[in-house]
Amino acid sequence: MAYLLEVEELSVSFRTEGGEITPVDGIRIALNPGETMCIVGESGSGKSAAALAILRLLGEGGRISGGSVRLNGEDLVSKTGAELRSFRGKEVAMIFQEPMTALNPVLSVGSQLIEAIRLHSKRSRKEARRVAAELLRSVGIPRPEAVLGEYPHSLSGGMRQRVVIAMALASEPKLLIADEPTTALDVTIQAQILELMKRFRERSGAAIVLITHDLGVVAEMADRVAVLYAGRIVEEADVFSLFENPLHPYTQGLMRSVPSPDAVRGQRLVPIPGSVPSPAAMPAGCRFHDRCPQADRRCREEEPPLEPVRAGGHKARCWAVRERLPATDATVASVGGGL
């Protein structure tokens, strides 16, 4: 079947003073309408760059250096100018990490929201204002009429993020990309914001790409999960398989480093030693090998492919996993579906 979003071998490069770096290196995402894909990774894993690349918002010095991004079969990488703008905000909308800086401080909430509405529909200013108030109400903002006339600085972080979401939902996008939408918010607000995104998905059947480093958010939202490490997807699975049976040593490390509700009292959290390698100095072989407890010589020399290793399309990029799991199982995986 045709996917809504199909990202093939996407690479993103940035020009820096020390030469070109490639923080995203050949990632693949396929997403059906109504699905939520979470991209998980540490800071520096390339997850934000991947999200921005989908909308071609990499900014100065950044470019898509390989691969394709297709939405409903249309290639976004080759689009320019007006064509691209008709996708941004309309077909694909984005929610950003920092609600404090994502809104323009000198323009009123209303004028920013009305701009988003009028960019993609032929509505009069007055009608757009009515729609804007409705949007604010739908994201749970009390007295929407009054808030339209206010400026971002007079709203709390949670309220601002609601405004950003209202703006993203203005044109009923088919795909919503959310780059750490709850990271800057406190926990109760986080839950409300996630709830909003879920409601939107259920109502409109849109797909969501959710970038996060928070495994709690993943468990709450995801249908499928891709674990990103140093610009590569190292493990990909549906959310249940991933939590029940994380295969890649990196994913296992991530799971061990966060507290779980059924943990034994006194049990220690285990951090992953070291940090994500800089894109300017990628290690040879498996990119995780110098932090991996299971690494052997092969891991240092040769990079493993991302391969189906279990039923349900559970893929991992690890030599050790390949050896543990019989090849027949992997073959089954590519035809098997769901749990």
């Binding site: 941004r88 950003f96 401080p105 701009e115 950003v164 203005a170």
Partner: peptide
């Protein structure tokens, strides 16, 4: 960041510069 937000909305580069950036 808010210029990126404006671009993500699908605003023209002219609007991004003269409506969103210039006033700031």
């Amino acid at each position: 960041d808010y210029l990126r937000t404006a671009r993500a909305k699908g605003a023209r580069e002219f609007a991004v510069i003269y409506r969103h950036a210039l006033r700031n």
